[in-house]
Simulated assay, not measured.
Amino acid sequence: MPEPVRCRACRSDRGEIVLDLGEQPPWDRMPLRDAPLPDPVAPLRMWLCRRCGLAQLADDVPVAEELHGVEPLAFAAQSDRSVARLADAGLVRPGGRVAEFGSPHGESWLPRLTGRGMTALDPADPGAGPADLVVDVYGLLHEPDQRTALRRRAALLAPGGTLALQLLSLGTVLREGQWYDLRHGHHAYWSLPALDAALRGHGIGLHRAWWYPLSGGTLLVTARAGAEPDAGARRLLRAEDGLGVRTAAGLGRLQAAADGTGALHAWLVAERAAGRTVAAYGAASRAVPLVCRAGIRSDLLAAVGDAAPAKQGRRMPGTDVPVVAPAELARLQPDRVVLFMPELADEVRAELPGIEAAGGRWVVLDPAPRLLGRVAAERSAGRSPGAHGGLRLPS
């Protein structure tokens, strides 16, 4: 009999599976293009703790070191905005001490912070001393033991210090139907209400939360000892609780979204029948369950372009779809290019004008495939190229 799932934060075994993607290949093992199929697979399931409300991976699967990607301009711009916001809040001060818990999904904030006069501490050094500011940039979700991870971050704070976390909240995942954000090696999916409760268990309280449109809704959250949520944070807390982020019924909508990937497969079949070649852009981790769940092969999707040299010459895990350089993607002259990361629309279209110049069209999943307007038409209409509407701030 299998061992019961225990919560990574509160250690309770009271919970249930709310999203089951079946057997999936680990996204971090991107095979070389000529490596034979099939690839190894493992269960990919989300379990919701009834006690503390943390949604989390039900199964631990060993993960390899992630292939180094190229940080998109949109992500770098978000980092700039977040650091500027912290500075405006008086949390970035010359002479202050900062420690960072980072992740493979973005560049470090330390150069931005030390450039403003802060001194960097190494959180792995037990003699480094307390920090006035502890930042976590998408790092928390990579920690298998969430209780220990939160304790480490809280314990590193100096008296009066602030913890700042940037994360994609479960509220965004649920609101936007982003079931494909469930990945091996991404252990915790915090909603803002569950995170607030967990932080208070470690002696610090949620103070502020700012919403940004990146990836459908990225949050920058601050917490410190004795703090209570301000008006903006309370509004976001209510919005997420209203979505049902701590209930099995609410999160069950993710399963329904995942079960709807047949629409993508059907669209690709129709495009092939119409004589059109379809490719994609962005060999990101979130693209792996999209491709595999929909049963997509290279007869339907010719290639996936990606700017990261480490990924080029490989294939998407679980399928024979090759990963190619952007220039090779352009040479294919595809009729349609699906953006697996729609937030990259502006910069990718600017980098690859030949796609549209040759008559091709960019496509976003919304959730069904939808063609973006052509750049020239969007400019004449007064919209920025790549704008695809619908970025909503929770009310």
Score class of each variant (00 low, 15 high):
14 R>H: 13
28 D>F: 07
32 L>E: 15
33 R>K: 12
38 P>E: 04
41 V>D: 03
44 L>K: 11
45 R>G: 04
55 A>I: 01
57 L>P: 03
70 V>M: 07
79 S>I: 01
80 D>F: 02
82 S>D: 06
82 S>E: 13
84 A>Y: 05
85 R>T: 13
88 D>R: 13
90 G>F: 12
93 R>A: 10
93 R>G: 09
94 P>Q: 09
99 A>S: 12
104 P>T: 06
113 L>R: 07
116 R>M: 03
122 D>Y: 04
137 V>C: 01
140 L>F: 15
140 L>G: 01
149 A>E: 14
159 P>R: 13
171 G>N: 05
172 T>P: 02
177 G>Y: 01
177 G>P: 00
188 A>L: 12
199 L>T: 12
200 R>G: 09
212 Y>M: 08
213 P>Q: 06
219 L>C: 12
221 V>S: 15
225 A>E: 15
228 E>C: 02
231 A>V: 06
232 G>E: 12
233 A>G: 00
249 A>W: 04
255 Q>N: 14
272 R>I: 06
276 R>I: 00
279 A>Y: 06
279 A>L: 14
279 A>E: 05
285 S>T: 00
286 R>H: 08
288 V>P: 05
297 R>T: 09
299 D>N: 10
301 L>W: 10
303 A>C: 15
314 R>P: 11
322 P>K: 08
330 A>R: 14
331 R>Y: 08
344 L>R: 15
346 D>P: 02
346 D>A: 08
355 I>H: 13
359 G>K: 11
360 G>S: 05
361 R>C: 07
362 W>G: 03
365 L>H: 08
371 L>E: 11
371 L>P: 06
374 R>A: 12
375 V>S: 03
377 A>C: 07
379 R>I: 03
387 A>W: 12
391 L>E: 11
393 L>K: 10
